[in-house]
Simulated assay, not measured.
Amino acid sequence: MTPALVPPPAPAPGTRARLGAWAELLRVSALFTVPGDALAGAAASGAGTSRTTALAVGCSLCLYEAGMALNDWADRAEDAAERPHRPLPSGRITAPAALLAASALTAAGLALAARAGRPALLLASALAGTVWAYDLRLKHTPWGPLAMGAARGLDVLLGAAAQPGARTRTALAAAGALTAHTTAVTAVSRHEVRGGSTSAPLAALAASTALGAALVRGALGRTRNTPRTGHSAPVPPAPPAGRVAAAAPGPPGTTLAAALAAGYALSAGRPFLHAALNPSPQLTGRAVGGGIRAMIPLQGALAARTGALGAALATAALAPLAKALSRRVNPT
């Protein structure tokens, strides 16, 4: 007689609650916005993705989560007054445990970067230093938003530096795009608890609209322009009478890049506009969450414009997952 299959025991309520607390502390719904940094950087490097791309993604995830844990550890006194429901002030996670997690995740991220090579380790070290400086010192200074933006830019460069023989400088434009967007979102997040700011979401709206429009124009421009080879492009023969010549196809990824760039501008701009029209804490918080998730189509557009269709599609596929999980775990 075949023995009956016994299902594994369900986690005890205490275990489930602890896992939920750690998911909240680490903002797991925002994790889906991280892999696209390394993928966009690798695509912009000209070397393409490789085994070391996975190491760069793993490093990025570890350092991002380290920043989340360290953020709540550093803000535990402030959160006790303004956000007592968070894991640390509510007592669901202890402060020493959060600090230990931040330290361990930082070490794990640097170890992964070391396996990807010296250039990747240098970028990861700069990224880790920026994350810790932001959480412990710069967050509540005028340099806070720029420091957070710089962390995203360094994350993109990390993805480029991890590729063998890569040209990291070619990823500077992609890094600058993520830096600009993240700086704007971070400026809005400063008003998430109390609301009341119209200028911050308006500035973020202007930045995301300008960035999205520039990416769309760049993608469509590549479709219309001929390659710059230093020679005149050959003139195609005239089509037979009665037939219409088909439009010359653009470089791979231009249509996808334009679509993702437009999607980025829309997904970021709408919540920013709502927060500007009604700067309540609720709408400001939604604008921050929307701005965080909007990084995914932005990363996808940056990858697609280099012709890296696989990286662009893989990044874009993370958007619905991030949105679904954000309904259960607040990304901010």
Rank of each mutant, 00 (worst) to 15 (best):
D135Y: 06
L172H: 12
A102I: 01
A200T: 03
L121S: 10
Y134M: 08
S189V: 00
E192S: 01
A162Y: 02
L138I: 05
D135N: 11
A113T: 05
A133H: 09
A151M: 08
P84A: 15
T183R: 14
A102C: 05
A116Q: 09
E78T: 07
L205S: 09
P89V: 01
S90Y: 13
G149L: 06
A95M: 10
H191R: 00
T106E: 13
G91N: 05
T168H: 07
L178V: 12
R194A: 13
H85E: 15
P201H: 00
D72P: 06
A147M: 14
A166I: 02
W132Y: 13
L127W: 05
D155N: 15
R115I: 07
H191Y: 06
R76C: 11
A174R: 05
P164A: 09
D135A: 04
A108R: 09
T141E: 15
L110I: 06
G129Q: 14
A203N: 08
S90R: 14
P119I: 06
I93L: 15
A102V: 01
I93C: 14
R92P: 01
V188S: 01
V131I: 13
L205Y: 09
Y134N: 07
H191P: 00
S199Q: 14
P84C: 14
A175Q: 07
A175C: 11
V131D: 07
D155I: 02
T183V: 07
A120Y: 06
S125N: 10
L127S: 06
L178G: 00
E192K: 00
A114C: 12
A104W: 05
A171H: 04
R190P: 01
